[in-house]
Design a protein around this nucleic acid. Structure first.
Lengths: 85, 85
DNA sequence: AAATATTTGTACGTATGTATG
DNA sequence: GCATACATACGTACAAATATT
């Protein structure tokens, strides 16, 4: 319990939420590729490491999948019902 | 399939395997606290981030749990039967 | 087929923030 | 309040996998 604070505290959480919003809103459809990490870093004015943390969160949420050398792709438009661990 | 290459390729994998060995061998028992990240970094001559990657692996293997401000503790002496994701 | 460019992965260092004791 | 320890965040460099020319 007590997971997921109401306000995303950290930059990587906010970025993950932002990108998740683009997915759930349909602006990023299943199969679409996210911008490259360095691009996301520039766009959102954070470091690439922060982008990677955000994308890691999105992977854990089951929304995207990443392939080295290729990119990160949307694999789901909304979160699977609460992974509960 | 095809997970876990025979030879651990990266420093953080080797370090994780090393620490796992200390756990499975009984030198680190359940409840024991691992050395601090900066200590492990010094001991094994790697960076803190590499230590963190190794510990992250151990968490995924279900062997340890980390509590901010407290430390990383052994919670299991051997891997649970293949987490298969 | 081969070389180049792009993109993610790993690893290092450093600084600052947050939680615990 | 202070010390300790983990967490986040910045930057940098190079390696590895993939895509493109």
């Amino acid at each position: 319990m007590d997971d997921e604070p109401v306000l995303p505290l950290y930059a990587y959480e906010r970025l993950a939420d932002t990108i998740e919003g683009e997915i759930t809103s349909g602006r990023l459809v299943v199969g679409a590729r996210l911008a490259a990490e360095y691009e996301l870093a520039e766009i959102h004015q954070v470091s690439r490491n922060t982008v990677r943390s955000a994308v890691e969160l999105l992977r854990e949420r089951g929304l995207v999948a990443t392939k080295q050398g290729a990119g990160t792709y949307v694999i789901r438009s909304r979160r699977p019902d609460t992974p509960r661990e």
